[in-house]
Amino acid sequence: MAVLKFRAYFEEDDAIYRDIVIKHTQTFFDLHLAILKSYEFDSKHQATFYRSNDHWERGREISVEKYDKAYRADPLIMAETTIGSEIRDPNQKFVYIYDFAKNWVFQVELINVTKEESSKITYPSTSRAEGIGPQQYGTRSLLGAKFVEIEEKYDLTKGSEGFGEEGDSNGSDDMVDDGEDTGGGEEE
């Protein structure tokens, strides 16, 4: 049985991608769910694939369901269409669109075909993840939510370098002994 490896690039940055291995007998619905899982997206929105060429032009549509829009030809349905049936060349490409309102676009390219499947892998599976993917709802910082808390706590936006001016009145006043015990030891 053939195992196909697809690379799903985030369209806006081709340094961000996920490699997904899947059996040729599995459906586009399986690939759709695998891409969403690999990018940590939910599966609440509409989605569609387009068979594509080397220039990423959109061809035949393979959709979750027939949506209320105009079609040149009725779409194939993801759950009924095996991946192997739509492979036309060794570097087959698909354009994958998720959440038509947000318009998440991924370029999906066949990068490898092997004849042996691994008994250690449950297909489909993400075999490689490169780059920090987009966050489905909102923005994702490289440092995460904790950095925002630190930035607010210490107000890191004041002063571009984080240093005061020489002769700043705050420099030596901080070291004044106000006579209070800081709790450094026990009194006897």
Rank of each mutant, 00 (worst) to 15 (best):
E149T: 04
N112V: 04
E186Y: 13
D74W: 03
A129C: 11
R18D: 07
I16T: 10
I111G: 02
I20Q: 06
L143K: 04
I121L: 15
F28E: 07
A34N: 08
T81M: 11
N170M: 09
L76E: 05
E151C: 00
F94K: 06
Y98F: 10
D74T: 07
Q135D: 14
Y9P: 05
R88Q: 07
I87H: 09
F163Y: 03
E57M: 07
K93E: 06
A47Q: 04
G179M: 10
V64Y: 04
A79V: 12
E152I: 01
A79Y: 07
R7Q: 15
T139Q: 03
D178I: 12
I20A: 06
F106S: 02
A34D: 02
E152M: 03
E188L: 12
K146C: 00
T122D: 15
R58P: 00
P90E: 09
E187D: 12
V113K: 10
E12D: 13
N53Y: 06
A70W: 06
H24M: 09
E188R: 09
S141Q: 05
D99C: 00
L110T: 00
K5F: 03
R128N: 12
G144I: 01
F6V: 13
I121F: 14
G167H: 08
G162C: 01
D13F: 14
K93P: 02
K37T: 14
I150N: 00
R18I: 11
T182L: 13
F6H: 11
A34L: 05
W104F: 14
L36P: 04
Y98C: 02
S172C: 11
Y67R: 06
S169F: 12
L142M: 03
Y67I: 03
I150Q: 00
S169R: 08
F49K: 03
P90Y: 10
S52A: 13
Y96C: 02
V95H: 02
H32L: 04
G159Y: 01
S38A: 15
A15M: 12
H24R: 09
E57P: 00
E12K: 15
E188T: 05
Q26C: 08
Q46G: 11
I16M: 09
A15V: 08
D178L: 15
K120C: 01
M1D: 14
I87N: 07
I132V: 13
K153P: 00
D174W: 12
E130K: 05
E80T: 11
G84V: 11
K115C: 02
T122P: 02
N103V: 03
I20S: 10
K66P: 02
D155T: 05
T114Y: 00
T126Q: 13
Y96F: 15
Y96H: 01
F41D: 08
Y17S: 09
S125E: 14
T126C: 15
D89H: 11
F28A: 09
E187F: 14
G171M: 09
S52R: 08
K93D: 02
H32I: 03
K146F: 01
D74V: 03
Q26I: 10
S85R: 10
G138T: 05
E165D: 13
G183W: 05
A79R: 13
